[in-house]
């Protein structure tokens, strides 16, 4: 039986942010309630029915269907010495799939995150490698390089940053990027997206960084600033749904990862938030 979007795990709350009073929210268009039981463990229900729950990466995860396994792993995040940053959530009026695609995009850095993640005239995206890893059923991009004026809160001046991108689920992405204070290691930055409706989502960024100098507030603020810049794009794309069929939008070579992501979504029928017929 094929796995549908219903069968995947989705973030629905920060575990540390749960209170006795329930959080009423949506998942794939359905009303759900996130609460704590008498023992202080998170409980998620849909119309009174208890849903599977896992707590991972500081978030409460649930699913409406039958998951094939646990929430995916990020082995690097377990390395000692990393600071785990719970950014919190940002609600965005866009398709959950558009939010992920934007996270996988490098070429917008000089124009959307000007003088932070990119700057003119350093706009070129060199060829990188993209593959769909069939053994784990994930989309990967490697050998992505980009010049950045201030790659992270901990970066001093401009550097060429190397990136790897990983899509372990239809609305989740993990980014590995050069770690300024620790050459040889990768900072881990994730975008966990809770699909509310086909055109609204709640985005939960989470990070596992080597950074001994910045305060937690500074790291959260840096990521918030970046994501709010992205939001001004995401809420102004037409159509709101992500087109999976060619014709409605014209990609270029820098978009190889976005092309692979769209193909992978279409192949699996992960179409909540997608537009299928070229308009």
């Amino acid at each position: 039986m094929s796995v549908t979007m219903q069968d995947h795990w989705y973030p629905v709350a920060l575990a540390s942010g749960l209170r006795r009073s329930a959080r009423d929210t949506l998942l794939l268009g359905r009303a759900i309630r996130v609460a704590l039981d008498d023992g202080g463990a998170p409980v998620v229900t849909a119309e009174g029915r208890a849903l599977p729950v896992q707590v991972k990466f500081g978030h409460v995860w649930t699913t409406l269907g039958v998951p094939a396994g646990d929430v995916f792993d990020i082995p690097e995040a377990d390395q000692p010495g990393r600071r785990l940053v719970e950014v919190g959530s940002v609600k965005v009026r866009c398709s959950p799939l558009r939010a992920v695609e934007n996270f996988l995009d490098i070429a917008h850095f000089p124009f959307v995150h000007t003088d932070v993640l990119g700057s003119e005239p350093h706009t070129e995206v060199e060829r990188y490698e993209v593959e769909i890893r069939d053994d784990v059923d994930e989309v990967w991009a490697t050998k992505v390089k980009f010049f950045q004026p201030q790659a992270a809160r901990s970066a001093q001046g401009g550097i060429t940053t190397e990136y790897m991108y990983r899509v372990p689920g239809p609305t989740c992405s993990v980014l590995y990027k050069t770690c300024p204070p620790r050459p040889g290691e990768w900072d881990v930055i994730t975008l966990f997206v809770q699909p509310l409706t086909e055109t609204t989502c709640e985005v939960w960024p989470w990070m596992a960084l080597f950074d001994d100098d910045s305060t937690m507030t500074e790291m959260i603020h840096f990521q918030q600033l970046i994501f709010l810049q992205d939001r001004s794009i995401l809420e102004n794309q037409l159509p709101a749904l992500l087109p999976l069929d060619p014709g409605r939008e014209i990609p270029t070579r820098a978009d190889m990862l976005s092309i692979a992501y769209r193909r992978w979504l279409k192949r699996h029928g992960y179409t909540f938030g997608a537009q299928l017929v070229a308009a």
């Binding site: 995009d105 490098i106 070429a107 917008h108 000089p110 124009f111 959307v112 003119e120 706009t123 070129e124 995206v125 794009i233 270029t252 070579r253 820098a254």
Partner: peptide, 20 residues
């Protein structure tokens, strides 16, 4: 504003900054 694609008066794309 998204990727800096530049268009001339005829509406034609003249530059894609990712691939100068």
């Amino acid at each position: 504003i998204y990727h800096g694609w530049r268009y001339g008066e005829d509406g034609q794309c003249r530059k894609i900054p990712a691939h100068p």
